Deep mutational scan, measured.
Amino acid sequence: EQLARLKREFNENRYLTERRRQQLSSELGLNEAQIKIWFQNERA
């Protein structure tokens, strides 16, 4: 579920704002660094 949600977010926007990253962190139970790194890896 977390992965599917991250992929949906990535398809909508390849870059997250700090606020959006905080929201996802709270909703998915991941820390902000994990989300940031995931997005960086997807863009690579």
Score class of each variant (00 low, 15 high):
E1H: 08
E1D: 10
E1Q: 11
Q2W: 13
Q2E: 06
Q2I: 15
Q2D: 07
L3T: 07
L3D: 06
L3G: 02
L3F: 07
A4N: 07
A4D: 12
A4V: 05
A4R: 10
R5K: 07
R5P: 01
R5Q: 08
L6E: 04
L6N: 01
L6R: 01
L6Q: 02
K7G: 06
K7W: 08
K7V: 07
K7E: 06
K7Q: 12
R8Q: 12
R8D: 10
R8Y: 10
R8M: 12
R8H: 11
E9T: 01
E9H: 03
E9Y: 06
E9K: 05
E9R: 05
E9L: 06
F10Q: 02
F10V: 02
F10A: 03
N11I: 11
N11L: 14
E12Y: 07
E12P: 00
E12W: 13
E12D: 11
N13W: 10
N13G: 05
R14V: 06
Y15E: 11
L16F: 03
L16A: 03
L16M: 08
L16Q: 03
T17L: 03
T17N: 09
E18N: 12
E18H: 13
E18K: 15
E18L: 11
R19V: 13
R20H: 08
R20G: 05
R21L: 15
R21Y: 11
R21Q: 13
R21F: 12
Q23F: 06
L24A: 01
S25V: 08
S26E: 13
S26L: 15
S26R: 15
S26K: 15
L28T: 12
L28V: 06
L28A: 03
L28C: 05
L28S: 03
L28Y: 02
G29Q: 04
G29T: 02
G29L: 03
G29P: 00
G29F: 04
G29V: 01
G29D: 05
L30C: 10
L30T: 02
L30E: 01
N31M: 09
N31G: 13
N31S: 15
N31W: 05
E32T: 07
E32H: 05
A33Y: 13
A33G: 08
A33Q: 14
A33V: 12
A33F: 12
A33N: 14
Q34F: 15
Q34S: 10
Q34L: 14
I35V: 07
I35A: 03
K36S: 15
K36G: 11
K36E: 15
K36V: 15
I37A: 14
W38G: 01
W38P: 01
W38Y: 05
F39V: 02
F39D: 01
F39P: 01
Q40C: 00
Q40S: 11
Q40F: 08
Q40Y: 06
Q40A: 11
Q40M: 00
N41S: 07
N41I: 09
E42S: 04
E42Q: 10
E42M: 13
R43L: 14
R43H: 11
R43E: 10
A44Q: 09
A44K: 11
A44S: 10
A44R: 12
